[in-house]
Computed example of a mutant assay.
Amino acid sequence: MFKIIANTLFLVALSAGTAQAWERVSTEAAFRALVVGHRQVVDGSGYIEVRADGSVRGQWNGAPVVGSWVWSDGYYCRNLRIGSTETGTNCQRIDSESGQIRATNDRGQGRSTTARIE
């Protein structure tokens, strides 16, 4: 019994030391430091680049991406055109973890996309 408990405690300690939790990006300054000027790459789909001047550029499923963004009330709000399709404005909750970001649509209530920051 002692051996089982010891092994369990060891595994818990090991996983606690290596696991990283997603952290909310809650300020524009933190968002800019993490994302602006870097590509956010979604394997198999494409990438976007969020720029300091408020523009967004990239490529998604072979189509060009153009648009604009602002930081509003703790959310990244962007309006994009992918090819000829307008996405409309969507404010996203941004979380980060080890060189990745997770953007969740509809102020954190919708679909999430995870991207690698390059």
Rank of each mutant, 00 (worst) to 15 (best):
L11F: 15
G88C: 05
V66D: 10
F31W: 01
Q40H: 11
S45A: 11
A52H: 08
Y47D: 01
E97T: 14
P64R: 13
V50M: 04
T89K: 12
L9E: 07
A103V: 00
R24I: 02
S72P: 06
I101W: 00
E97I: 14
A115Q: 13
S112E: 08
G83L: 07
A63W: 10
S84K: 12
Q109H: 14
W60M: 08
Q109Y: 10
A29V: 02
G62S: 04
R116K: 12
R93W: 01
T114M: 06
C91I: 04
A29D: 11
G44E: 03
A103E: 07
F10L: 14
R93G: 07
Y76K: 06
H38G: 08
T18F: 13
D73T: 10
Q100H: 15
Y76W: 14
R93S: 12
A29M: 01
F31S: 06
G62A: 06
L9D: 03
I5F: 12
Q92D: 08
V42M: 10
G46P: 02
T113I: 13
V25T: 00
R32P: 07
G58F: 08
T87L: 06
S84A: 15
G67E: 00
A19P: 01
L9I: 10
R111G: 09
R24E: 06
P64E: 11
E97Y: 09
F31E: 02
V12L: 15
A13R: 05
F10G: 05
T8N: 03
L9V: 09
G88E: 05
T85P: 08
T18M: 10
R107H: 15
G58I: 10
I48K: 10
M1F: 14
K3Q: 12
R107P: 08
E118W: 08
S15Y: 11
N90R: 04
G99D: 08
V41G: 05
E118H: 10
V36G: 13
L80Q: 04
N79Q: 13
A33D: 12
A30H: 01
G67P: 07
C77G: 06
D106E: 10
L9W: 07
V42F: 09
R93P: 02
S72G: 07
R39E: 13
G110Y: 00
G110H: 05
R111E: 15
Q59S: 15
I101D: 11
E23Q: 12
R111S: 14
A6C: 08
V36H: 07
I5P: 00
R51S: 12
N61K: 15
T18H: 07
L34I: 01
Q109T: 15
